[in-house]
Design a binder for these strands. Structure first.
Lengths: 191, 191
DNA sequence: CGCGACGTTGATTTGCCTCAACGATTGTGG
DNA sequence: CCACAATCGTTGAGGCAAATCAACGTCGCG
């Protein structure tokens, strides 16, 4: 149900039952199987996705032809290509289900209507984007401060659930190094 | 004057002259000389800064004791440690003037009042943070896709004004490599 | 004019990648 | 339910991009 999105929004703003109904009418629910592609590079990015259950990842294809993961989204996270979503143009990323995943889909047109009909949603997304900007600053800091080995150790302590749920080669791809090197790091740090 | 901030906001939202006055009463104007520190790591991050004229940079001190630049802010950009600003806690970055710089300062308390008194500001900042999130995604992509040499070439083409205004060792620090290596790249690519 | 900040150059070192090969585990069709 | 294939993780040899270290120009400013 879209209930979970409403619960999440109510951590930030109040929504009357009437407004909740408006919201529900504007969103879609979708399910994806493991490895299914939700959005392809080159498509117009019409939607932003809220993960209800499961895990998505965002990646792109490098000049050398490798998949490079840039983000994961677990439960209660939003994910999209925000540059392409904002301008409703072709996006430069893929979004794929890491596990079988249920999402709430909010498309650009519906969101603009929401902002008009429920001004409080403007506040909600202001806070969500603010958290994203903050997280990006922290991420930049860690990536510049630490060696690849330290990045892995820091990541595995900060987000142990990812180590459980996500295959190692995707972790490596996200952290910016090769599966081989990750393997070496793990051997050195076995506890 | 704070006029420039209002002009910037009016690219995104409408403000009555009355609201403009409210805004002006909530912000401060400040000037900083070249190399002056605006915010220190460890301070509570009470404000967000809008650059009217000049250039600021954000950096932190690495474990090895080096200054690592994470962001620049030219005219019409906002800058702050958004994690620390949101929670009103000690920040992990420094903000320093690269040139002599004039800013509009908006502190946390004033901003909360603004959101209440002028709901449209919520929309404005939603859009600003959304742009930041989008920019962070693009930046992550470039940094993972390109070699350091390609990063420099891409950066110097995308933001030629930085190459003019900002000393090379700060560019190097921002792009994540040493001044020596930057020098080598420049020699190879002189046109 | 002199000093400190900035940029350059070259020799050496290293963190991490590339490539290739081989186990282990998972999934799938017969 | 087994055989076989694909996917995933590990290991090791060799190589390269970029860092480190040290020394030396050069420019702008007090």
């Amino acid at each position: 149900m879209s209930r979970q999105l409403i619960t999440h929004m109510e951590k930030f703003i109040k929504l009357s039952t009437e407004h909740q109904q408006v919201l529900i009418n504007y969103v879609k629910r979708e399910s994806y199987k493991k490895k299914e592609i939700i959005l392809s590079s080159g498509d117009v990015c019409r939607s932003t996705y809220f993960v209800v259950k499961g895990c998505l990842r965002m990646y792109f294809i490098t000049e050398k032809g490798l998949e490079q993961t840039t983000q994961f989204a677990l439960e209660n996270w939003w994910i999209s290509d925000y540059m392409a979503f904002t301008s409703q143009t072709a996006c430069g990323f893929y979004i794929q289900a890491v596990e079988s995943t249920e999402v709430v889909v909010l498309d650009h047109y519906a969101l603009e209507r929401l902002y008009q009909e429920i001004p409080a949603t403007e506040r909600y997304f202001r806070m969500i984007y603010q958290k994203m900007a903050a997280a990006a600053q922290q991420r930049t800091k860690y990536f510049q401060d630490f060696s690849k080995e330290e990045i892995y150790i820091h990541f595995s302590k900060s987000f142990p659930e990812f180590i459980q749920r996500v295959p190692q080669y995707l972790i490596a791809s996200y952290l910016g190094f090769t599966p081989e090197y990750l393997s070496e790091i793990r051997k050195k740090n076995l506890s």
